[in-house]
C-alpha cells in the first residue's frame, strides 16, 4: 500500500463518502445521485463497466473503498458527456469519473495494466515535455509500452494507418526530433510544478 493511501485510510477511517467529497474532483455531488440509472444506460462503453456510474455512487456511500478505487470501471469513460447532459439531478458525472480515476491513480490503487491509465500517463508526459502533443512520439510510445517485440508487432499492425497519415501530410516523419514544442516550455514546467504543489497542499497530499 502506498504511503499516501495509508494516510488517507487512517484519516477517513470508514467514511469513504467524506474522503471522496474532499479529494475527488466534483466529489461533493456524489450524495445527490438518486439511482435512476440514466447515466449507466447512456454510456457508450456501458456494457464494459464492471460497475457503471450509478453503481459506483452507491458503492461510495456504502463505503466500498477498495472495490471502487481498484475498479477498471471509470477508466472506461470516453469523455462523451452523455451522462452529464442527461442526469436529471445535473451531477457532473463525467468529471466525477475523471476525478475518481485520477484519485485512484494518485493513491497507486488504480489497476496497473489498465490500457487507458497507461495511455493517459503517456499522454500527459508527452504534452508537458514541450507544451504541445508530439503525435509520432505518442503513438510510438503507446505501441512499445509492452516491450520491443510487442511494439514491432503493434507497429506493423498500425503501419497502413500511419502510412495513410504520412502520405496525406498528417504525420511528421521527423517527429522524433522535432515538433510539439512551445517557446515557453520551461515556463510551463515551472507553472505545472507550482500547480501540482498547490493542489497537493489543498488536498492534503503533500507530506
Amino acid at each position: 500500500m502506498s504511503e499516501l493511501n495509508k494516510v488517507m485510510v487512517e484519516k477517513y477511517r470508514n467514511d469513504f463518502l467524506k474522503e471522496v467529497e474532499a479529494n475527488v474532483e466534483e466529489g461533493n455531488w456524489v450524495k445527490m445521485c438518486m439511482q435512476c440509472g440514466v447515466c449507466s444506460g447512456s454510456c457508450p462503453f456501458g456494457p464494459y463497466w464492471e460497475h457503471p456510474p450509478q453503481e459506483l455512487f452507491m458503492m461510495i456511500r456504502a463505503g466500498k473503498r477498495e472495490e471502487v478505487l481498484a475498479s477498471e470501471s471509470m477508466w472506461m469513460c470516453t469523455s462523451c458527456y452523455n451522462c452529464i447532459v442527461r442526469c436529471p439531478r445535473e451531477l457532473p458525472i463525467t468529471h466525477i469519473m475523471h476525478g475518481l480515476a485520477n484519485y485512484a491513480h494518485r493513491l497507486g490503487i488504480a489497476p496497473k495494466m489498465n490500457p487507458t491509465r497507461r495511455f493517459a500517463k503517456l499522454f500527459w508526459e508527452n504534452i508537458i515535455k514541450g507544451g504541445r502533443v508530439n503525435e509520432l512520439k505518442l503513438s510510438i510510445g503507446l505501441y512499445f509500452m509492452d516491450g520491443f517485440s510487442n511494439g514491432v508487432k503493434k507497429g506493423l499492425e498500425m503501419l497502413p494507418v500511419g502510412l495513410g497519415m504520412f502520405k496525406t501530410g498528417r504525420l511528421n516523419p521527423f517527429g522524433l526530433l522535432s515538433g510539439g514544442k512551445c517557446k515557453g516550455a520551461g515556463d510551463i514546467h515551472k507553472m505545472l510544478k507550482k500547480a501540482k504543489e498547490i493542489e497537493n497542499r489543498r488536498k492534503g497530499f503533500a507530506p
Binding site: 480515476a101 485520477n102 493517459a120 499522454f123 500527459w124 504534452i127 500547480a195 493542489e199
Partner: peptide
Amino acid sequence: GASIGYAEGGELP
C-alpha cells in the same frame, strides 16, 4: 490537456 489529461494531470495543472 485534452480529454485524457485528467488522469495524470489532475485538476489544477
